[in-house]
Structure formats: C-alpha cells, structure tokens
C-alpha cells in the first residue's frame, strides 16, 4: 500500500497547488516588500484564479446564472472551480462537467431542469466556435440542381447540436435570456432543442418532428437516395428534411465538386 502523495513543497508545483488550495499556506521562499504579509500578497493570485474562472463560467452559462441568481451561481461555480480547474488554456472548453456538477448540488433540487439548461448552453458555445460551412438550403433541391444534389453526400453542419430533455428546455432558455417574456408555464412538457449556426449567429429552435432520426442517420454523410432508403413514414425524407434545411442544420461537405445551388 502506498501513502497518498504529499503536496509539492517547492517550485511552480507548490505555487500552483497553494493557488488552488484555500486552506494551504503560501509556498516557501516568497518575499513581500513594504512590510506586507506574504500571505496577503499570495491571496491576490488565489483570488484571481478563483474569480476569473468563475467569471468564465458566468459568461458561458448566462441562463443558468439568471435561473439561480448571482449569489448561488458564484457559490456553485466556486465549488466547481476548486475541484475542476481547467485542463486547457482554451477557456471556451471550460465547464463541460458543469452541468453534472449542478445536478449533484443539493441546492438545485427544486430546479431539476437546471442541468439540461446548462447542457444546452454548452452546446450553444460549441456551435459558436464550430467550423465554418455553407448551410444547405431548400434552393439546393430545386429541379435544375436536384440531379446533382442527389449524387452528393449530405452531412450535419459542423455547428449542429441537439438535446432531448424531459423539461421545456427551449422555452426556459428563451424566457430567461430575454427572448420571451417571463411568465408561469401552463404546461411543463418535454422539449427537444436544436442548435444551429447557419452563418455566424447561433440559433435555438425546437427540433422538428423526427429530426433526431435524420440527424442520427447523418452520423456519416449520406446521399439523399441512401437517406430516403433508411427513413420510413412517418419520418420520411420529404417530411423531415425541409425543416432541417430551413434551420441551416445540414451541409454538403464535398468541396471538390460544384455544389448544388451554385456559388456558396
């Protein structure tokens, strides 16, 4: 049996450990001028680490913050930061485990939909930073280009994400982000969210009926013909495809051939 590792005593490792451990004393070998205690100077770093990472989560999860209020958000995010410091300098990736963290906090029990709202906000950040691609549109399927379109594989747009929730997650997001007036919900129905980014702005909508079925089929790009063979009523291609095209959820990934619909 091995003993647990002791905290590092020297060097950057000791400094980093003390930054992340509120109860730890500052590392050895530091000096402060002007008669200031080293601990007070060191606390500047400890505070910066904590506050800037909480701020990063507040920017990433504005609707969660609106739902729980500032004070609770800071406490919840602070606890997350202490146990899940970032693994990468790219803070757009930070907070992937925050929805699960929220689910485990006793205080969030009255808001059982909160983790799904947080998951939705994560998906919207992923969509914001996703690769650029021209969204396929209905005009691509006009009679004169349909023959070309039928031979090309269709794919999910790189920004497309979706989330099936037992809660009205889209309505909750809209009401708490200023997109819809806040009012009591008559019906707490399940909603499936579709996140798309046809150009630069991220859009949130309700996933069209059977849309998930088509998006799952497009885990690998498929031609319209292959898609049509795999889908069956009531989720047939003619029903499911147009609303997904209208939301910019799909793309023609082949770039070496002329795209249907002409110039991008």
């Amino acid at each position: 049996m091995t003993a647990p590792a002791l905290p590092p005593q020297t060097g950057d490792a000791a400094f980093a450990h003390a930054c992340l451990t509120p109860a730890a004393p500052p590392p050895q070998g530091l000096r402060a001028a002007g008669g200031d205690p080293v601990a007070r100077r060191f606390a500047i770093h400890r505070t910066t680490v904590r506050v800037t990472l909480i701020d990063a989560l507040a920017v990433a999860f504005p609707v969660v913050r609106a739902l729980v209020g500032d004070a609770y958000f800071v406490a919840a995010a602070g606890a997350f930061v202490a146990h899940n410091p970032p693994r990468s300098p790219v803070l757009a990736h930070y907070g992937q485990e925050f929805p699960e963290h929220l689910a485990q906090l006793p205080g969030t029990a009255p808001l059982p939909y909160l983790p799904d709202v947080a998951r939705l906000e994560r998906l919207m950040i992923e969509a914001y930073h996703a690769a650029d691609a021209r969204a396929a549109c209905r005009a691509d399927l006009a009679a004169e280009t349909l023959a070309a379109a039928a031979t090309l594989p269709l794919a999910r747009h790189p920004a497309t994400r979706w989330l099936r929730s037992p809660w009205p997650v889209v309505t909750l997001w809209r009401m708490n982000s200023g997109h819809l007036p806040l009012r009591p919900l008559d019906q707490w129905t399940a909603e499936a969210a579709l996140v798309t980014r046809p150009e630069l702005d991220v859009e949130l909508s309700l996933l069209p009926p059977h849309g998930e079925r088509l998006l799952e089929e497009l885990a690998t790009p498929r031609t319209l013909g292959a898609l049509a063979e795999r889908l069956a009523a009531p989720a047939d291609l003619a029903t499911v495809l147009p609303p997904l095209l209208d939301r910019g959820a799909l793309t023609w990934p082949t770039t070496s051939q002329p795209r249907p619909g002409g110039a991008s």
Binding site: D12, F15, A16, T48, T52, P86, R87
Partner: peptide
Amino acid sequence: HDGLFLND
C-alpha cells in the same frame, strides 16, 4: 502546472 491551467 501538471496539466492544470490557472488562468493567472
């Protein structure tokens, strides 16, 4: 340090 990023 050690794969963690402290943002300071």
